[in-house]
Design a protein around this nucleic acid. Sequence first.
DNA 1: CATCCCATGTAAAAAGTTACATGATTTG
DNA 2: CAAATCATGTAACTTTTTACATGGGATG
Lengths: 184, 184
Amino acid sequence: MSIRYALLGLLAKQPQTGYDLFHTFKTQQIYYWSSTHSQVYKELGKMEEEHLTTHDIVYQEGSPNKKVYTITPDGERHLIEWMIHTKSKPAKIKDEFLIKTSAFHVISKEEAISLLHRMKAHNEMVVTGTGQWKEQTFQGKKPGYEQVGEYLTAEYGIRYAQMYVDWCDWAIKEIQSLPENTES
Amino acid sequence: MSIRYALLGLLAKQPQTGYDLFHTFKTQQIYYWSSTHSQVYKELGKMEEEHLTTHDIVYQEGSPNKKVYTITPDGERHLIEWMIHTKSKPAKIKDEFLIKTSAFHVISKEEAISLLHRMKAHNEMVVTGTGQWKEQTFQGKKPGYEQVGEYLTAEYGIRYAQMYVDWCDWAIKEIQSLPENTES
DNA sequence: CATCCCATGTAAAAAGTTACATGATTTG
DNA sequence: CAAATCATGTAACTTTTTACATGGGATG
């Protein structure tokens, strides 16, 4: 029921195909939602039944034909209603790394630190990657109001990853300063 | 397949009931995983079949009897194997608020700012709440290695919420400095 | 006297993932 | 010539959520 709004939000920016939408989830700066192509196509079908979207078929030579979906006025009303009058559910996070962190006591300090180093490196890449995307897209300028969403969420992504990097650094130091348990 | 490790991680700290485990997910400083009681009970049943856990029944007067689950040596081996040799999948985040953010262009600046203020207030409460829990639990002292998990993840929770607060502040200022779109 | 806490479970529905299926064109 | 990209979909399966079900004791 909620991938729906993610799709409507993206379609409110511009008409797109299911393929485009899936790739936005997969590759773009959308670390705050995830999905698979099968789910995207399914939901697009449902939304069309409910008149929240329509599609036009674009015939292409060389590439397969595609269905470009457009949000309807009904769809946009639906989206705005949700945005303003529906209280956001708390974010659902499933972070395997933090589960591992919470069980660090069952492995050695060295192994824990090694895991943290890897995680730090990964998040450093995210900071760099998202930073580059933001720079390329906005070139140091402030966006127009139509692009404010991407602008704000890109910055969020950078801050989130940077927070993770800093926390990894801190955690490594903390662990190093602790005496290891001799029992167990 | 992954709630399993969250449960094993918690059971590796101390034997607990399904009820306890669910409440840890629901209320405790575990913003990095979420679940429901029905899923917890089901998974505990499965894990027992696979000899990763066992349970003892504690008979109580007044309250219902309870099943206290304990991780087995097999279960602990399973957990450690996963922690060290299984690469963590990237965190899956489903944050409705960021979907709303990404679609801010369909609502007014005032409404967007109002949503950000509410989100900021919520995260300020999280910072305070988690900070108090950490203070109560560790009282400014460093934990022993058996408690390192809670210590590190509590700090993570505080930093995460603080990052959200700071980002909200930044986003509010950014939006105020942008000219609103007159079209659409 | 209503609601919350303790405590455990099942059943049904919804959401999400993985695998199956197809097929031309482009890139290395 | 193998792999990746474009492009869409279905089927089977797994995971997750919501609702149903029960019931005593404590709290306001």
